[in-house]
Design a protein around this nucleic acid. Structure first.
Lengths: 356, 356
DNA sequence: CTGAAAGCGCTTACAG
DNA sequence: CTGAAAGCGCTTACAG
């Protein structure tokens, strides 16, 4: 692979001059510039980013450590992060923590070793010593979606409180009184906040959130299945299951289906995080949608501000409720209502409509 | 950030010795090793990967350029690639081409500039000059899923021919005779192959694949919607739509739903690429499943073999048909069959079963 | 076993 | 406007 020396030789100038034209330095003669550019062309020269980074101490690279790439929410987040970063002249390296603190540390360490200019993280846990050290060492950092309390790092996230309140209002209006939640890990802020918001909203309606109705999940599908099975085994099962993320909702759906039960007739289901497929599930799933793309872009802007010496800003954007049919509402107008179906074994107070 | 010099000073040895213990070089006294390790600990020293790469001319990094991260198939592929790479001591940097040749080139260039050790690519098109140059220049490369004909690069992919044959047999058995396909871009091998396999399978049953029944999509949801609308507007619409990937199937579903039509009663649907949500759509979607994780792992192994001087191997794994209900088969046993529903406006020869 | 030195490919004051 | 030189943080023959 041609190096700057080869270009210099070919153009008959020094490497300093080559470097200057490559970096658009003003003081280069038109003649020198032309000869260098020609040499670059004939040699197919491309500057070695590794050498450049070593010299300039900047990689123009952002690290993004997310909890789970397979989760469509994080996939979309990653995509918007890369887009905005590219627009601002940065590349991004993604590390997938898979909800495992040890893997998260692996990626943070790897990214730090590569001397990325800044780190975007959606922490899987309360903050490992490594992560805390990185913050203390002054690594430009921004938390997205989840954050670590007590750490001086800007946070870009969605506030789901109002949407959860809307959800509970919707459920209460449908006549549901026994509401359960599949929670995310208590070590994550989103894990805690969603339960807290749900409980607070229930209280506003004079409803309780008994221990039995809080299932401990880990944001992955399998835990949603397991927790839902537990709910269904209860002497008095809940009428509604609210999954704190879309993957656990998938697991819940699997569990309900495995018992030959129906949503929403036998049990209603709602999820935090909306995805395109929720429109087409049987039935379409009521969900709380985050402004994912906006979050990713805002996070990149905050991080790049920090990197480039401008004051970074924390951002909180509202999530919103998207009502569909998984909690028992009436069929939408575009589909003709089918004939009444016999009541299901364990009737809920909801209008029973078959899903055709 | 502490450098190797600081460690040397702290340990009272030369940087050469520090480097040796860091790289597990045998000829270091136990005493020196201990002092270095202690110094590393107290300084929290981490070797600068950028400097190391410049010196050793290897980054222990693989580039992965995929067509679309938002496609669950590629997400899973990316995940398995990262896992296997990590197991073999490599990191991976993902570039998302978003089915755009220009973006693909952007990422390839970026990755090459970073001097990745090898490149895994699922080409969006027939091969840009840049990509061809990279191959000619000797960049270790392996194609995954899609490939570029006539280029001397190992290919790791799934063979869907048998599965497509099984699908057509299934459809034919159900009485369907007018089968249409939403094709992927003709510039991609998978775009072409799936149409070819479909056509061949149809011929085996004495069926034709008329031009009208080949809709040109681009592997993204919106094109699936558009093409499906076209099919539905035909004087004689097809009885079955086979989407060449899961995203276009999503779009097809959107289009069918927007017309107030039902799958499979009004039109049957099948997709290439299976995803967990297909179990829960209304109705569950019949799909051709690729051994995605295996493909990702095999691709990494081939690339690392090539990088480390072993002969790389092309790998072809079979895809398989997963029959569900979107083409009209009878309801599965675990769900009691509901009462007969009135025939739909445009009846197909298929047994009509409502989906409840 | 250990250290001094060269060199990877760049960038950037410094001097002219 | 241009070039020689230093230096970024490592690794690795080479000599001892």
């Amino acid at each position: 692979m041609a190096s700057i020396k080869d270009v210099a030789a070919e153009a008959g100038v020094s490497v300093a001059t080559v470097s200057r034209v490559l970096n658009d330095h003003p003081s280069v003669s038109a003649d020198a510039r032309a000869r260098v550019l020609a040499a670059v062309g004939t040699l197919g020269y491309r500057p070695n980013a590794v050498a450049r980074s070593l010299r300039t101490d900047q990689t123009h690279t952002l690290g993004l450590v997310i909890s789970d790439v397979m989760n469509p929410y994080f996939t979309e987040l990653a995509r918007s992060v890369e887009e905005e970063a590219r627009a601002l002249g940065y590349s991004v390296i993604i590390g997938n923590a898979d909800e495992r603190p040890d893997l998260q540390d692996h990626h943070v360490r790897n990214l730090l070793d590569r001397r990325i200019d800044g780190l975007l993280v959606s922490p899987t846990d309360g903050g490992s010593p490594l992560m805390l050290d990185a913050v203390r060492a002054g690594t430009p950092m921004v938390f997205v979606d989840r954050w670590i309390p007590g750490v001086e790092v800007p946070v870009v996230r969605a506030d789901g409180e109002a949407a959860v309140r809307d959800l509970v209002a919707h459920l209460h209006g449908l006549g549901h009184r026994r509401l359960a939640i599949i929670a995310g890990p208590a070590a994550t802020t989103t894990g805690q906040e969603r339960v807290a918001a749900f409980r607070a909203a229930l209280h506003a309606y004079g409803l309780d959130l008994p221990e039995d109705y809080i299932g401990q999940g880990d944001f992955q599908a399998e835990s949603g299945r397991r927790v839902t099975e537990g709910f269904l085994d209860l002497a008095t099962p809940p009428e509604v299951v609210f999954a704190a993320d879309n993957l656990m909702a998938l697991g819940a759906l699997d569990a309900v289906r495995a018992r030959g039960l129906r949503v929403p007739d036998d049990i209603a289901l709602a999820a935090f995080d909306d995805i395109p497929w929720f429109v087409h599930t049987d039935p379409p799933i009521t969900a709380i949608a985050q402004p994912t793309g906006e979050l990713g872009r805002a996070a990149v802007r905050a991080l790049v501000d920090r990197i480039e010496g401008r004051p970074p800003q924390s951002v909180t954007l509202p999530a919103r409720l998207v009502v569909r049919r998984s909690c028992g509402e009436t069929a939408p107008p575009e589909r003709p209502a089918p004939p009444e179906r016999p009541a299901s074994p364990q009737p809920s107070p909801v209008t029973n409509r078959s899903q055709t």
